[in-house]
Design a protein around this nucleic acid. Structure first.
Length: 360
DNA sequence: TCAACTAACACGTTTGAACGGC
DNA sequence: AGCCGTTCAAACGTGTTAGTTG
């Protein structure tokens, strides 16, 4: 237990954070990182993992992550690149992922990299699992927040710092668009090892797939249908499927160009791997707009009385990293410049509450 | 017509319970 | 009884894929 009244880090605390696997992130970033989001929630790859330093070892901290939209556009994949498809969908109620170790002593956080690998992304706006809700085909960037706190419900919001990393910008998708990203993921994600070998067996040659609009009624119809086939699946097809699953079927070729391989990174283009903490000092006071009441209701011994609004300071502008518009170089993005704003700057950055909805 | 979405699938990894040996 | 290592099955996470929606 941290001794109360211990001098806390000053406004210019030396807390810093660096991104782990920065080379991998950079490699993904250079191709145009896509993160799959699903209704049931999908983990991120590469993983969000940061290394913290400069914390006071005997003080407790809460570490959390949230996501901010990078711009106000919706994107589409056309002609092998991302193009703006229109205005962004209205922002969803923000959710934050509180690291399950929170709160923990500074020494704990600094002992090893802080991993957010259990964090999941979803496009289900009605999600009740506490996953991070995002719109598909939008660009987002994770932010990492470190706040001094003895417990989750007694956070010292005057002493927090926000970290973000330019190479973690991604576009949320429901299915991969860029084959290069698919290849990168398969090559680097151990869970995708089954897709790494060219000799993998063809699957589901003519498998029944319910698809998006299958209702229970329709499913019942199909199941109870006297027809010997579903979705055109004949006995011969079924036999073919069985054969394919049995391992004696033809070998499917890789969907990827043999020319695609590890890219040599241009270090001069790569964004810095370490984020400067956004010191709370000079930022205007920001108040919560949508702090989940449920969070407060969960406080042990809560008396139900309204609590004072915690104060949060946010950076006045977008994160201090290079723009991602056309000026940013031959990246994968085709983004019109914003009027009166730096290309790629986050128009909503200062409008997004921190910890608007916490989940863990 | 087509981009976007969904969910079952095969396959590999991770996790944790059960077990045996010391 | 407690610890440690091994085994094994279930759970989990992955990209693929084809049907469906709008």
């Amino acid at each position: 237990m941290a001794p109360r009244g211990t001098p806390a880090p000053g406004p210019h605390s030396p807390i810093s954070a660096s991104l782990e696997d920065v080379d991998l992130w950079t490699e993904f970033y250079r191709v145009g990182t896509e993160m799959v989001i699903t209704k049931s929630g999908r983990r991120m790859f590469p993983q969000c993992k940061i290394r913290l330093s400069g914390l006071v070892p005997y003080l407790k901290y809460v570490v959390l992550a949230d996501f901010v939209s990078v711009d106000n556009f919706r994107y589409k994949w056309a002609k092998d690149q991302w193009e703006v498809a229109g205005k962004a969908e209205p922002q969803l109620p923000g959710r934050s992922y509180i690291h399950p170790d929170s709160p923990a002593y500074g020494s704990h956080w600094m002992k090893e990299p802080v991993s957010f690998h259990k964090m999941k992304l979803t496009n289900n706006t009605l999600d009740q699992h506490g996953h991070i809700i995002l719109h598909s085909m939008h660009r987002y960037q994770p932010r990492f927040l470190v706040a001094q706190a003895d417990d989750l419900f007694n956070v010292c919001w005057n002493l927090f710092q926000v970290f973000s990393f330019p190479q973690t910008v991604f576009i949320s998708v429901t299915a991969y668009q860029n084959e290069q990203i698919t290849k990168l993921k398969i090559d680097n994600n151990p869970f995708a090892k089954g897709f790494r070998e060219q000799g993998r067996k063809p699957r589901r040659a003519l498998r029944f797939s319910p698809g998006r609009g299958l209702t229970k009624e329709r499913l019942r119809e199909l199941v109870s249908s006297p027809e010997p086939e579903r979705s055109g699946l004949t006995k011969e097809d079924a036999a073919d499927q069985a054969e394919a699953r049995g391992g004696s079927g033809p070998v499917s070729s890789s969907r990827f160009s043999p020319l695609w391989g590890p890219r040599e990174l241009n270090q001069t283009e790569g964004p810095p791997g370490e984020a400067a903490g956004t010191s709370p000092g000079p930022y205007p006071v920001y108040r919560f707009q949508d702090f989940s009441p449920g969070l407060w209701e969960a406080v042990p011994g809560s008396d139900g009385r309204p609590r004072p609004e915690p104060e949060v300071r946010l950076p006045p502008h977008g994160p201090p990293y290079p723009a991602y518009g056309p000026e940013a170089g031959p990246g994968p993005w085709l983004v019109p410049a914003l009027d009166g704003a730096a290309p790629g700057a986050s128009a909503d950055w200062a409008q997004r509450p921190i910890l608007s909805y916490a989940c863990w």
